[in-house]
């Protein structure tokens, strides 16, 4: 039942054994140790699990392994590190854009997808790009400001 899949994760070639219908999130977290991708609902409703697959933001909680074979996946760990943060991570730190932080890894991914296709988004374009995400703490205005800041850098 399990099959071997090759794909690229954060720029590295990976080979995993998984069932074709296994959601990508389980492979990222439990096999590859990339736990920054968070499970929130499993229903494509909250966005906590967002990753890039070939530069498109997708829900890792429902995206199956057979659909990512030979593709390129980016998780929040692939953006940057605490010592060498990505401009988005840096901007989120500077704006203190977050409270509990659980939603942020997915939001960083959608923000990256947005800035890659639109380097100077308006406030409402940012809000639209984040429509697939929920934040329960109410850090929305800071998150939008952080993405505006990252766009300027």
């Amino acid at each position: 039942m399990a099959q071997t899949y090759r794909f690229t994760v954060n720029g590295e070639d990976r080979e995993v054994s998984a069932r074709p219908d296994l959601p990508l999130i389980y492979v990222l977290r439990n096999q590859l140790g990339l736990t920054g991708t968070h499970y929130g609902c499993g229903l494509e409703q909250c966005g906590a699990c967002m990753v890039l697959v070939d530069d498109e933001a997708v829900y890792a909680c429902t995206r199956t392994m057979d659909s990512v074979a030979n593709k390129s996946v980016l998780t929040m760990e692939g953006l940057g590190t605490r010592e060498a943060p990505h401009p988005l991570q840096q901007a989120f730190m500077e704006e203190q854009a977050g409270q509990c932080g659980y939603c942020l890894s997915g939001i960083l991914i959608s923000a990256k997808a947005l800035l890659d296709r639109n380097p100077n988004p308006s406030r409402s374009e940012i809000a639209t790009a984040l429509d697939g995400h929920l934040c329960r703490c109410g850090a929305h205005t800071r998150i939008i400001r952080a993405i505006e800041r990252a766009a300027r850098t």
Partner: peptide, 14 residues
């Protein structure tokens, strides 16, 4: 804690 959460899996879940 926010710097930790922005760069990796920092939660009990992780």
């Amino acid at each position: 804690d926010l710097a930790e959460k922005l760069t990796g899996g920092a939660f009990i879940h992780d």
